[in-house]
Amino acid sequence: MAATPRTPPSTAPGAQPPMGLRERKKLRTRVAIRQATYRLISEQGYDATTIEQIAEAAEVSPSTVFRYFATKEDIVLTDEYDPLMAAVLRSRPLDEPPLESLRLMMREALSSFAIEEDEELRQRTRLMVEVPAIRARMTETMSDTAKLLSEVLADRAGRSPDDLPIRVFVAAVLGALREVTLYWGEHGLEGDLVEMVDAALDTLEGGLRL
């Protein structure tokens, strides 16, 4: 039986309202599929793990797996944190510098992930480094996150959701997150990921000094 899904703490600033029964059932199914996938990958490797095996381990049909996740890479990469990040960003003071708002948002999301799902975070990061298909898909899925966060920042600033400077700014911040995460994985998952992201954002803010 799948473990009870772990969701971001409800006490976090900007936390989402409680989900209805249908949403909770969907979340349980999604988490069960993801946990089964990670368990199988740990036992037999990424390439040897099939959708049929994942479905059997999660006690759902293969069609259910595909209804929730378009690809095997998506199972590894998808989490429940985009809505949390958007909510935290919306809750920040309007006069706060955008980089500081994004910094605090990322710090909260990463801290929650590390506390609630530390082993999943580590396994996901290892797979990002080891599996080219996952690394490529990560770049694609981050564009969805960038679009969501750009819309929130644009709304706060009274700008168009498609505002180019905002898109460039958010893409730069998420690019920093991507590179730090890969660096962390390439170097044995050593060091504090949150502190490393903070340092990367300091570089963005102050510029590169050689």
Rank of each mutant, 00 (worst) to 15 (best):
S42Y: 09
Q53P: 04
P93K: 13
R92A: 10
S61H: 11
A55P: 07
P83D: 13
A58C: 10
D79H: 13
E56G: 11
S91I: 10
Y81V: 05
V65F: 04
I51A: 12
D74F: 01
I51S: 10
I54A: 03
T71R: 13
L89K: 00
D79Q: 11
D95V: 08
R67I: 02
M85W: 01
K72D: 07
P93E: 14
R67F: 09
R92E: 11
I54Y: 01
T49Y: 01
Y46M: 08
E52F: 05
V88Y: 04
P83K: 08
A57D: 05
P83M: 11
P62M: 09
V65Q: 00
A55R: 05
E73R: 01
E80I: 08
L94C: 11
S63F: 05
S42M: 12
F66V: 06
E59A: 15
Y81T: 10
L94S: 15
Y46F: 14
V76D: 03
Y81M: 14
A58Y: 02
F69P: 01
L77F: 09
E43H: 11
T71S: 14
S63P: 01
T78P: 00
S61Y: 07
A86F: 07
A86W: 04
T71I: 05
I75P: 01
V88A: 10
P62F: 06
V88Q: 06
E80W: 08
V76I: 14
R67D: 09
D47Y: 04
D74E: 06
L77Q: 06
Y81A: 08
Q44E: 12
E80L: 13
R67M: 08
D95N: 13
D82L: 15
P62A: 11
S91K: 13
R92D: 04
Y46D: 05
V88C: 08
L94F: 14
T50F: 03
T78S: 05
S91L: 12
M85L: 08
E73K: 02
Q44P: 06
I54H: 02
A57H: 05
V88F: 09
D79S: 14
E73L: 04
V65A: 03
D95L: 11
S91Y: 12
T64Y: 07
T78F: 02
D74R: 03
T49H: 00
T49P: 00
D82S: 15
A48D: 07
F66Q: 09
R90S: 12
S42K: 14
F69S: 01
Q44R: 13
D74T: 01
A57K: 05
T50G: 04
D74A: 06
S91E: 15
A86C: 14
I75K: 00
